[in-house]
Amino acid sequence: MKKQNHDKLKKDFRSFYKVLMIACASIGVFVVALMYLIKNPDVSIFKSSEPNSEIVAVPVEEEGLDKVENGIHVRTGFVEAPGMMETVQNCTNCHSAKLVIQNRMNKERWKSTIKWMQETQNLWDLGKNEDIIIDYLVTNYPPQKKGRREVLSNIDWYELKD
């Protein structure tokens, strides 16, 4: 009986120790972040006006975030055209601009992809920006004929013999 009590006490202590270590690590991360913010007064913490967005630290005085050179948005690589900033502001909050650029789709596929992101990835309602973004993407990054090979069809399969 004493051995069972001892084993239960050991198990309870291990559980308590794990919780204590996680709490200490969390406090440590918080303290390091707080020290960074105190030592770097040019960094501001703000909450985006977009729903479901996270708090991010961005240098207040950082210039050139939306700089365009030779018709290309420097930070993202997006082509400068109507709808670029709406695309930057809504798409690059969650993922890289490269992911957007490489997925060349037509209007219907973009609509279904946005709907999927809203249903499964917590993408907010884009409102009037949805059509602006889709038009920008379809115009500047249309589907390409080249790239991956087409799906194989009309194949004469044969059986390999040992």
Rank of each mutant, 00 (worst) to 15 (best):
A57L: 06
I134F: 05
S48W: 06
W116I: 00
F78D: 00
V56Q: 13
F13P: 01
I134C: 00
S153T: 15
I132N: 04
W157T: 15
R149K: 15
D125C: 03
K10A: 08
P59Q: 11
L9G: 00
L137I: 05
Y141V: 01
S153W: 05
S153P: 03
I72V: 12
K18I: 07
V151L: 12
Y141P: 01
E119P: 02
N70D: 12
L20K: 14
M35F: 13
V32D: 07
N140D: 03
P82S: 12
W116A: 10
Y17T: 15
Q4L: 05
L37E: 12
V79D: 00
S49A: 09
M85V: 01
K128N: 09
K128D: 06
M21C: 03
Y158C: 11
E50T: 11
L152A: 14
M1A: 06
M85C: 03
I27W: 07
Q89G: 11
K18V: 09
N129L: 02
I101V: 09
G71W: 00
Y141H: 04
R104N: 03
I45L: 13
E159W: 01
N40K: 05
W116F: 06
I27S: 11
S44A: 15
K2H: 03
E119Q: 12
T76C: 08
G71I: 02
S112E: 09
K3P: 04
L152T: 08
E69T: 14
M85T: 11
C24F: 04
K111V: 08
R75K: 15
R14D: 07
A25C: 09
L99N: 14
E54H: 11
E62Y: 06
V79R: 01
I134R: 04
H6W: 07
V31D: 10
K98M: 07
K11C: 09
N5I: 06
T87G: 00
S15V: 14
P142M: 00
V79A: 03
V100P: 06
L126K: 02
L34M: 12
G71C: 00
H95W: 05
G77C: 05
G147L: 05
K107G: 02
M84E: 07
N106W: 08
V68N: 01
N5G: 08
T120E: 10
R75S: 15
E80I: 03
D66F: 05
E63L: 04
S49C: 04
P41T: 14
D135R: 08
I55Y: 14
S15C: 04
